[in-house]
Design a protein around this nucleic acid. Structure first.
Lengths: 203, 203
DNA sequence: TATTGTACCTAACAACTGTTAGATTGTCAA
DNA sequence: TTGACAATCTAACAGTTGTTAGGTACAATA
């Protein structure tokens, strides 16, 4: 891909994720990229097309990561327990919630979803429905192979995911994504996961 | 308070909560209120002053509600159990998360917190710190009077509050606040509270 | 050497932005 | 009736917005 075009996308996402789509002007972007505003229209049909391309790229990344997670459920039973923990942390935490690109897209979506129904659907899918459905599957599986005693897998998924979502909103979706905030998130989220599985073994 | 001034505040909050402060123009507000844009400057020093007054009013409402909740903890022990459940639902759910005014302010804050540090602090205080601190107090109290066996009250607060926050984000902070969405939230949140206390009695 | 295509530029457009100066009403008290 | 005040208006300002038409510089191709 063209170097300038990539730079426009990077800067646009950076500004969109802080101020929202409509509050950022083409000229704001151009000041940072250091080109004249008309040059943007050589690479993109209009302002909306920049946003479209950013979202499309995000959805392809997210689809790939979620597929990777789903595959961790299909391997042999013995390796499930070990693999699941690692995969969840690596795919979902590091490469998704804390990934610079994905994180910025999610910030942007959290703004736009309030006035744009299409954005709301994308946000709901990737932040609520998809992760909760995946966790429900995980717990159904753990119940079926006897690691967990019978329980409501859907409610288990909420109890597992909700604190992670809360910590993410607290540390990963405020201000800029810093290493310090990442460490806060990791500390809280990992501790929660450990506690959660300890408590489940007890029941 | 002046009728027109109140109408400006109402319309401004409605638009700000959907599109964010900077994406709404004075003329957007005036079209709905049906006045000329210069008339706004009779009631407010500038655009920022509208936002300031909205936030100030919210903080006085929120302070009152939280004080009311705190008081539910100081009454005689016997009535605590009965009172706490009712108060939490009434104050925190109905008069706070689902109240039209407070709900709109929280939407607005969720946009502005991404680019404005002051807004971020207000959001964090009223959405994370204050509710979590209150719940921590509640569980400390329940532990001290023997209703709950010894446990980490801070982590209990997270486990209690996180699903409520998740349901709120899912149903109360997307699109417009409808009666249908309110019912979804109530259904999920009340069920969670019941489950939570059932499980605690078991331990 | 002439032509073509890429990647940028200057300059302008009509519409919109927050804000202000000053005029115009209607409603009271003197 | 006069004067003062509150609440609104008209009209304009300087700057910003997304977008376009048309020009320029430079490389690769014919």
């Amino acid at each position: 891909m063209n170097e300038t075009k990539q730079k426009i996308l990077d800067v646009a996402l950076d500004l969109f994720s802080q101020n929202g789509f409509s509050a950022v002007s083409i000229r704001d972007i151009c000041k940072v990229v250091d080109i004249k505003e008309s040059s943007v229209y050589y690479h993109f049909k209009n302002k909306q097309a920049i946003l479209d391309e950013l979202l499309q790229h995000f959805e392809s990344i997210a689809t790939g990561l979620m597929n990777q997670l789903e595959q961790a459920l299909t391997i042999t039973q013995k390796t499930i327990e070990e693999n699941l923990f690692e995969q969840t942390c690596d795919c979902f935490f590091e490469k998704y919630l804390m990934d610079e690109y994905c994180n910025k897209i999610m910030r942007l979506l959290s703004i736009e979803r309030l006035s744009n129904y299409e954005m709301q659907k994308i946000y709901n899918y990737w932040i609520f429905d998809k992760p909760l459905n995946f966790q429900t599957k995980v717990f159904s599986l753990l119940i079926s192979i006897g690691i967990i005693k019978t329980a409501d897998s859907k409610y288990l998924a909420v109890k597992f995911y909700a604190p992670i979502y809360l910590f993410a909103q607290q540390w990963l979706f405020c201000g800029t994504l810093t290493d310090e905030h990442k460490q806060f998130f990791r500390g809280n989220a990992y501790e929660h996961i450990n506690n959660f599985f300890k408590e489940m073994e007890g029941i």
